[in-house]
Simulated assay, not measured.
Amino acid sequence: MAHSFHISPHQRHLKWSQSLAPALTVPSGAEITFSLLDGGHNQIRPDNAPTALADFDFTLTDPAFGPVYVESAEPGDVLRVDFLDLEPGTYGWTALLPGFGLLADDADIVAATPALKIWDLTESGTLPNASGRKRLAVLKPGVAVPVRPFLGVCGVAPAQPGVELSTIPPYAASGGNMDCRDLSTVGATLYLPVNVAGALFSCGDGHAAQGDGEVCGTAIETPMTARVRLTVEKRAEREARGWRDGRKLDCPHYVTPKKGREEIEDEVEDDKGEYAALGIHEDIREASRMAVRGVMDWLEAEKGLTRVEAYMLCSVAGKLRMSEVVDMPNYAVSCALPLSVFLE
């Protein structure tokens, strides 16, 4: 079905709720184009960069756009979301915001906060990589990351009647601000539980690039034009495919594009590999913090980045991984950075 439906920037909300009036009603299989403000509600732009952080209103963050009522969707069904096209804006931003991010309480990060990087995402501001297939967003001369758009927010109305849930955290039963760079890139498919009639799907929070973990609290945030297809998978259809009792999903599931992540991003091109630090601690969060600090220390000592640049680079290009979770009492979490971000 050719897309003929559109959600505009003013059709947005800051709570997930069954009581939201649909902005649009579509049949199953419809394609919808969304015109999205960024995750900061377009409060940070190149024209107001000097004052944007001082004036930033946290209550406006992570707006979701919609909701879209999908005909025939009923509780117990699954909503399939196919990501067809994602076009970032002409600029993006990464910021250190007070009290936000994995290392928000580190003394050196506190001293450097707030901080802002504006990225030029126009053709004149980005570079082709060695293969010429993907644009690279430049952090500073000699350091750049692949532009790989995705949506941080994708979700449906919650199962609980009479409640309003914040759009800032994710939720197992309905999705939301999941910030997973694999589940909503072009070519990926996301499966969400349907909790209410019509599902009431919304999306938002466009990113031009992000590492696993989004450790500083922001990615390359950007306005986005997104095109998705929404299809209802009925409980009986899923049961016929082998799902026991047509089992409802307990959490979001997704399928990545046929090409693997490294092939898409060229992150390990020319056999440059990765540099990683392994954090080991009885607390998963502390293990994660240890790993990120390790890579930041290396970036400062070996690559000459400032602490802020190192933190931002880990947030937009690093890979925070659960490397080992069974040998108690300690967990092992790695933070890896593709060496291809260094152009020289």
Results as ranks from 00 to 15, higher is better:
N330P: 02
A130T: 15
S174I: 00
C180P: 04
G198W: 08
A137T: 04
A336K: 11
D108P: 01
D266E: 13
P146Y: 08
P161N: 02
K259C: 04
R80H: 04
S72C: 06
I284Y: 08
G89A: 10
D105G: 03
Y191M: 09
E324H: 09
P27G: 05
E282V: 14
R289N: 03
H281C: 11
W243V: 14
S131E: 15
A115M: 06
L339A: 04
S315M: 03
D62N: 12
S323D: 15
G66K: 01
H253R: 15
N48F: 05
H10P: 06
A197G: 02
K258D: 13
R227G: 05
G213W: 01
V232Q: 11
R307Q: 07
M328C: 12
G142P: 01
E123P: 06
A107K: 10
F65V: 01
S340W: 10
G99S: 08
L305A: 08
Y254C: 11
T33A: 03
L79N: 06
A197D: 11
R307K: 07
H207F: 09
L320G: 05
V110R: 08
D297M: 05
A317L: 03
K234F: 10
F83I: 10
D82P: 04
N42W: 08
L79F: 11
L343D: 04
L230M: 11
E267F: 14
L230V: 09
V255S: 07
D212E: 07
C180Y: 07
G304M: 08
A144P: 05
G89I: 03
A236C: 01
S166P: 01
A287P: 06
R148D: 12
N129I: 10
G76F: 12
G176Q: 00
W119N: 00
A157M: 01
C314W: 05
D120A: 10
K259Y: 09
L313Q: 07
R181L: 15
L20A: 13
R261E: 14
V326F: 09
L53A: 02
A236T: 08
R247T: 11
E267W: 14
G187R: 11
N42K: 03
W119T: 00
K303I: 13
P63L: 03
K272W: 01
G279S: 12
E263Q: 13
D271Q: 09
T167R: 02
C154F: 09
F56M: 11
R307A: 06
G125N: 07
V145G: 07
V145H: 12
V325W: 13
V156S: 00
W16P: 05
L20F: 10
L37M: 14
H3F: 13
G125C: 08
G187W: 13
L249N: 03
A21T: 14
G162M: 05
R238F: 04
R247E: 15
A159V: 07
N129M: 05
L299N: 01
V156D: 00
S19V: 00
I264Q: 15
C180Q: 11
L86E: 10
F58T: 11
S202C: 03
S334I: 12
